[in-house]
Structures are given as C-alpha cells and as structure tokens.
Write a protein that binds this DNA or RNA. Structure first.
Lengths: 179, 179
DNA sequence: CTGTCTATGTAGCGGTTGCTACAAAAGTGC
DNA sequence: GCACTTTTGTAGCAACCGCTACATAGACAG
C-alpha cells in the first residue's frame, strides 16, 4: 500500500489527539498510521518537520470543526454568543482538541518551533468564527468579539485546572452569562 | 554533603523553572541538584512522587512570589486592579513561571497525577491575592475578582500564542483597561 | 529487457530513560 | 570498638529514543 504525507497526516493527527503530543514518539506514531518509523522519517525528513506539518494539519481540522459547528444565523446578544461558543467547547468531540490544545500552548510558550504558528492560526480562526457569531446590532463587534474571546479562553483554562466554578461565577459577574 | 528532600527541592525547582517539565529526566535533574539519579530515587521513591512533591513546592514558591508582589494598599478601580496583576505577570522573574505554568496546565488537562492539584492550588492562591487587591468600594468584590481572573488568564493564554494584541483590545473593549 | 528512481523492510547504532543490585562509607547508639 | 541504620557510589539492565545503512521490491521510461 502506497502512503504519502497526505494519507499519513490524518492518522497521525488521530493518534496525537488521543495520546497527546508529549509522548508522541516515532514508533507509536508509525504504528498508529500503519507504517514504520523508518517511513515517517522517509516522508518527513525528521521528527521536527513531521510535528510541524502535523500541527498545521490539526489546525486545519480544527478550522473545519469550527465551521461545522457554525449555526446559520448570528446570535441575538453577547450572552447568547458566549453560551454558544462555550457549548461548542463542551462537545465531547471537542474534548480531545482541548486537551491537545494545552500541549500546543505549552510548546508555544516555550518556543518550540512549529507550535506557536499553529496556535496562532487556531486562535485567529476562532476569533473570525466568533466575529461572525456576534449580534448584528452590537455596537462594537470587533472589540466585543475580542473581549468575549479573552473571557472564553480564561474560562477554558480555569476549567482545565478544576476552577470551572470560578470561571462561571466570573462570567456571571461580568454579565457575559445570563443570571 | 548530606542532602534531604528539603534541600533538594529548591534546586530541582530552579532547574525545572529553567528547562521545563517536559524534558525533566532524572539524570539532568540530579546533576542540577548536585546529586545522582540514584539519590533522587532514594529520597523520593520514584519519579512520579518526585514530580508531585516538586509541583507542590513550586506552588508554594509561587504563593510567596505573589505575596512579595502585593503592594500595601488596595487598588482604586477594577481597571487599576487589572493593570496591577498584568504588571506582576510581565515581570521578568515571572516569565519562567508563566512558561512552566502552561506545562502544568497541559498536564492537569491530561490528568497527570500531581498536576491538577498543584494547578488548582496556584489558581486559588492567585484568586485570593486578587480579592485582596479589589477596590474597597467595589459593589461585588468576590464576583469582580473572579471576572478579572477569568479575563486575565485569557489574556495570558492569548499572549502565550502570539495574540497579545487580541487580548489587549479585548480588555479595552470590555472596559477592564483604561483607554 | 534494462536501467533508474521511488517506496519499503530489516537491522542496528549510539544515546537516554526510569530504576535496581550490590557494596561500601558514614554516622549513631551502646 | 561494635552492631546497626542511613546515606552514597558504581555498574548495569531492559526499554525506548531519533535516525541511518543496506538491501530489496516494484513502477516506469527507453
């Protein structure tokens, strides 16, 4: 069976979404993709560019998932907008993404080559998605989207470390969720 | 020279703050602490409990750093409060903490044993610190602190992935920073 | 059919991983 | 001084790491 990067990447992405980036070493990756470590190096040259390309691919998948989650019409209020994006984030299919996301953020913060670009791309995508969701009559859709974005990302982080209550009460106090 | 856990932990923490948790393996850790991998296992039993105790120690250091950064008097407004905590986060000495922080968040999200507890503890500490900083006349100090907290954490995350502009504009649009 | 280029398998290299077996030194209590 | 416990050094194990050398199989061009 003839395998190329393009056939490999989705399988690699699936494995990484399940097991994380931290312990992603060539032999398990290869096994999950139906090849050998030998062939991964053959196709990608070395592990670093493999990971870089893989992160790019995952960012594209994420973009597609956001589009698929996009309901036809805009939200009526900022509160509804916040609820929608939080609902997207709590879908089971998104959980694997979220767990992987913090790996990517950690890599980006430490300056590991491909990570920052992939993370930036995913955040840009989410920001655009959010802007399209903003209420039509919002006085400042661009700023409002960025404000929501900041609060949502904080909520996700606090939730990741067991402070979902703190985040929820914060959103309530800030008027971003209906009481 | 006789070394115990208590003398070891600060040196281990220094090494981890500089090089991250991801690549923290016994031999480099031991070298940085002036011992051997053999002795690390002797003192801590295995790597997992070493990391767990180390994370607890780092959380305590973080707590102390926050206290040291605490100015005597409270802030006058929520905006000033936000500016203060963002200023603390941008201190050079805090950068290493921040980079390490995302490692911890990633571990917590994936469910690695000691990570979630340490992360929770550090966030609880920061929340208490923030509550003490809230303006005296604030109508809802508890809720306001949680709201600020959520926005601040979102800002830190966006900054980590190269979206500091997005975060800044968001805080401005949300009235959390003076324009 | 033959040469050439691409795709793949097998084996292995030098290095690192967490951890252990064994022994010796260094206290410590009597 | 002697038994005993705590602390430490040396060596090594089996597993894994990224990566490479070498051989081979197949596709395709002439």
């Amino acid at each position: 069976m003839k395998l190329s990067r393009d056939t490999l990447l989705p399988r690699l992405a699936a494995h990484v979404l399940e097991h994380g980036l931290g312990g992603a070493s060539l032999r398990p990756l290869a096994k999950a993709a139906g090849t050998s470590d030998r062939m991964l190096i053959y196709h990608f040259g070395n592990k670093e560019t493999l990971i870089t390309e893989l992160l790019g691919h995952i960012a594209a998948i994420y973009s597609g998932a956001l589009d698929a989650a996009l309901g036809g019409e805009r939200a009526k209020t900022r509160q509804e907008c916040a609820e929608r994006i939080l609902a997207v984030g709590s879908q089971p299919a998104m959980q694997a993404f979220l767990v992987l996301w913090w790996d990517i953020v950690a890599g980006a913060a430490r300056g590991v080559p491909g990570y920052r670009a992939a993370a930036r791309q995913m955040m840009t995508q989410q920001l655009e998605w959010l802007e399209r969701q903003m209420p039509e009559d919002d006085p400042d859709p661009a700023g409002g989207a960025r404000f929501l974005m900041t609060a949502i990302e904080g909520t996700l982080m606090l939730s990741a470390v067991g402070h979902e209550d703190t985040a929820r009460e914060g959103l309530l106090a800030g008027g971003l969720l209906p009481s």
